[in-house]
Every structure is written in structure tokens, then in C-alpha cells.
């Protein structure tokens, strides 16, 4: 993992400790992430057809082009081979609705790759998850394009094409009664191209955990945070707040837990910090969904927890032999 692509390391400078070591190269890791995301993307493409293919491929290619252009303009080494830009483009595309216009995709990948990552010095140096930064900035600017109900209105399926979180926010708990966990897991809900197929995302996540590419502590504690907070809300007033199942399987929760919150350089590395980070993000997610004005809170929750991650990493195990 201490690859010479990490920062510009032709002077043998590496970024500060601590590191993960798993023996693989960055590109291998990224190919694995792409592989893990494939089932969710495929189902999105089956559901939404060519527009989804268009958004995903434009997103990946424009992300790579932005990375290439930026590295060229700033006279740095070319890093598109490490696959990081491609992964950013892919994840970004997965979060978009299939109807996203071309300029939104290109602008979004610019924000993700240049403002989210390269400005800070490239891969491994970004304090925030680039994809999340891009989605947050675009969501603030074009709320209606991220309103999945409106954006995906022209699609007709054999299931109710409703974005569960929006229905929950605007029409209350009774509007989401018809959703059951099985349907939600099979992607029978409205949402981003690659964010609805829960089963695929979970499978991909488990694969990545087994390969040691993402940390199970973060993913699981995130889900636990969402579950517990939603349960508490539900128990205090079940007529106003939906149960944990909806919160777990709708919106960006699953893709957030396995693919966004676990991004290497913006998440903590020690055991307890990882747990706090995950639970905090899950807690904030449900808090924003239930009380805040935004329909989905995953994006902002992860951004806020990214911010705390260097602080959380101050909680570390005592060095052996040193007095307290």
C-alpha cells in the first residue's frame, strides 16, 4: 500500500503514520472495488437502460480526463493508471439518478477529482471523500435534479417507483408502509443508478471486507449507528418516525456504509476511532433524515465525520513500555 504513487514520492517522502499494510498495489485495490460495485451497477443498468450506461461511462471517463488534465497542467506525474480517478467517477455515477444531464456529470467529476482530491495533493492526501464532496456541492445547487421521484418520473416498472425517503419526509410513515425489506434489497425503489440494489451492495461490501480492502469496523458500525438511532426514534413515536428497516435499506445508506464512509484517506485507522466514526456517521444520517430539512443525510453525515477523523485518530493504543 506504500506505493510510489501515493504522494509525489520521488524524494522518498511518505505521508505521516499510521499506515495500513496489505501488500497489494493501489491499482489492485481499486480494481477490487470496481468488481465489488459491479452487481449494483448492473442491476441499475438493467432497470434504467441506456441512460444509466451513459451516465456511468461518462462519469468514469470524465473523471479520468479531469485527473489527466489536472496532472498535466500542474506538471505532475500522470496518475490515471492507479484507477483512483476511475473509482471516483464510478462511485459518483452510481449515486446519480439515471436521468442526470451530461453537464451535471462532467461538472461533478471536476469537483470530485480536482477540488475533492487533486487540490490537496492527490491520492491519499484528501481530507474528505471526493465523491461525497462532489455530491454535496451539486445537491446544494440543484436540489430538483436529485429529487429521484421527479427525475425518474418517466420510468414505468411493475413496482411502485417511489423514493422511500422523500415519501417518508413529505407524506409520513404511512406512505412507506408498502415497502418491505425484500423489495428494498432487490432494488425495487427509486434512487441513484447504483445505490438501490441493496443485496448487490452488501455482497460487494462483504467481498471487500474479506479481501481486507475496506474495514469492517467502519461499515458495520455505520449500519449499527443507523439501526440504533432509527430504532430509538421509532420507539419514541412510531407514527412520526419510520422503523430502522427503511433507514437501513433506502437512500444512500448501504452504498455509504460500504463504499463511501470507508474511503482510505478520509477515515480513521485505529479500532476505537473507526467505531466512533461509523456510529457517528450513522447517528447523524438518521438525525438529518428525521429532523433536518434534507431528504437523505448520508452525504452530509459522512462529510462531517470525515472532518473529525484526524481528531478521532488521536485516540490510539498506548505505546508499549511508555508511561501514561
Amino acid at each position: 500500500m506504500v506505493d510510489n504513487n501515493m504522494v509525489d514520492t520521488n524524494k522518498f517522502i511518505v505521508s505521516h503514520a499510521p499506515f495500513w499494510h496489505d501488500g497489494s498495489k493501489i491499482s489492485t485495490r481499486n480494481y477490487n472495488i470496481a468488481l465489488a460495485a459491479l452487481p449494483a451497477i448492473l442491476l441499475g443498468i438493467i432497470f434504467y437502460g441506456m441512460p444509466a450506461v451513459g451516465v456511468i461511462s461518462l462519469s468514469i471517463s470524465s473523471a479520468i480526463i479531469w485527473e489527466f488534465v489536472f496532472r498535466r497542467v500542474t506538471k505532475r506525474s500522470n496518475t490515471i493508471g492507479d484507477g483512483s480517478a476511475a473509482i471516483i467517477g464510478m462511485l459518483f455515477g452510481m449515486l446519480l439518478p439515471a436521468t442526470a444531464p451530461w453537464w451535471l456529470v462532467i461538472l461533478g467529476t471536476f469537483v470530485a477529482v480536482v477540488i475533492g482530491k487533486q487540490i490537496y495533493g492527490g491520492i491519499g492526501a484528501n481530507p474528505f471523500n471526493p465523491v461525497v464532496v462532489a455530491i454535496a456541492i451539486l445537491m446544494i445547487s440543484w436540489k430538483d435534479l436529485f429529487d429521484f421521484n421527479e427525475a425518474l418520473m418517466n420510468y414505468d416498472f411493475d413496482f411502485a417507483m417511489v423514493y422511500p425517503l422523500a415519501a417518508l419526509k413529505h407524506f409520513g410513515v404511512s406512505a412507506v408502509d408498502s415497502f418491505n425489506a425484500g423489495d428494498l434489497l432487490m432494488g425495487k425503489q427509486s434512487g441513484g443508478i447504483g445505490s438501490t440494489f441493496g443485496l448487490g451492495l452488501i455482497a460487494g461490501g462483504i467481498y471487500l471486507i474479506i479481501r481486507g480492502i475496506i474495514r469492517w469496523e467502519i461499515a458495520l458500525s455505520f449500519l449499527a449507528g443507523v439501526f440504533i438511532t432509527a430504532l430509538i426514534f421509532n420507539m419514541t413515536d412510531s407514527a412520526r418516525y419510520a422503523g430502522p428497516v427503511i433507514h437501513l435499506f433506502a437512500g444512500y445508506t448501504l452504498i455509504g456504509a460500504f463504499f463511501l464512509a470507508t474511503e482510505d484517506s478520509s477515515s480513521p485507522v485505529n479500532f476505537i476511532p473507526m467505531l466512533i466514526y461509523g456510529v457517528g456517521a450513522g447517528f447523524l444520517t438518521v438525525l438529518i433524515r428525521n429532523i433536518g430539512v434534507y431528504v437523505d443525510g448520508v452525504i452530509f453525515a459522512i462529510l462531517i465525520m470525515n472532518l473529525t477523523s484526524p481528531l478521532l485518530d488521536k485516540i490510539k493504543p498506548k505505546a508499549i513500555g511508555k508511561a501514561a
Binding site: L107, I119, I137, L138, I140, S141, W142, L145
Partner: peptide, 21 residues
Amino acid sequence: QPFTFMVEAPGAFVCLGLMLS
């Protein structure tokens, strides 16, 4: 469709930073 982010406060910081760089 205007890029509303740019006229808000965080947009000012990002713009200034980009121009500086």
C-alpha cells in the same frame, strides 16, 4: 440552471482558492 453553490459562502472560498492556485 445556475450553479447556486458559487454565490454561497463556501463557493467564495473555493473560487478564491482556485484563482489563487
